[in-house]
Amino acid sequence: MVNIGIVSYGAYIPRFRIKSSDIAKAWGKDPKTITGGLGIIEKSVPSLDQDVATISVESARSALSRCSINPQDIGAIYVGSESHPYAVKPTGTIVAEAVCATPNLTVADYEFACKAGTAAIQTCMALVKSDMIKYGVAIGADTAQAAPGDALEYAASAGGAAFIIGKENVIATINQTCSFTTDTPDFWRREGRKYPAHGGRFTGAPAYFRHITSNAKNLMELTGTKPEDYTFAIFHQPNGKFPVRVAKMLGFTPEQVKQGLLCPVIGNTYSGATMLGLASVLDVAKPSDRVFLTSYGSGAGSDAFDITITDTINQLEKKKAPLVSELIDDKEYVDYATYAKYRDLLYWE
């Protein structure tokens, strides 16, 4: 059987951060309750000159810099996001041009709330497996929108990661993937609207928890694995609490979850969230480590992956691009007023 998997990867997180406590203060909320309740200390903030296209390009270039594949061998680029800079005009075309992969490739933008990036991985796997392409680039990135004063404002952040999927020199084999999808309106953004709306507590049990637990169990059934078979487990992380709770429900330990849990220090990067979690795990993973990943996208669906790290990871030139931990540590704080300016919350004529 041919091993299909990850050939290289790259991550990007904008440098600016805002503390949850500063957002709470702006809206007259108790900083301690908010920070503690959501498990988010601070979140990343994109500058005025950053968007999903620039984050995707930075991640994809990092992925390419770590390996020696010819960009002209990239047969597909899929960018998953719910904050594409254009409603009509694919982000992927900008990425393709910026990594010198044009013109002989297929490109499309994906949207499936926070799981559009993992959907892109699945598509690339299928195209590689069917020999339609040699390499595919799957990207999940967002500069997530949140209405001023909404609970989402503490979480919605910016970042992304890119994965080159192929079957030669694979650093991590994707053994199995499966999905779980229903029509569950827990969170949405209507066409033409600037900010999303959500069902409050309805986003929990019937949405996030049901889809992730169902899909995770399906995957373990398919692969015949148990939680203790995995070195790392990554779950979608809309806040700092949900992924820890869902892990516990499924029988994973906090130790397994830790390396892939970034939300407390960068917020929810939406389509970037599980992708950045996986990048963070790959930064430290060793040959034969096994990784369990389950994404979640509102609306609703979940993609799950069973991944095994190969010996080839030792040959990947990780130092050619920043590690996730380095991106997290390189930061500069902004206050709420600057955040409002950067996120285009101010209105004037």
Binding site: D49, Q50, D51, T54, V57, E58, R61, I94, A98
Partner: peptide, 17 residues
């Protein structure tokens, strides 16, 4: 060098990177 948005033609026009 890094890749950034340089300017755009307002909210309606194209974005230039």
């Amino acid at each position: 060098s890094t890749f950034r948005k340089i300017q755009d033609d307002g909210y309606v026009g194209a974005i230039y990177y």
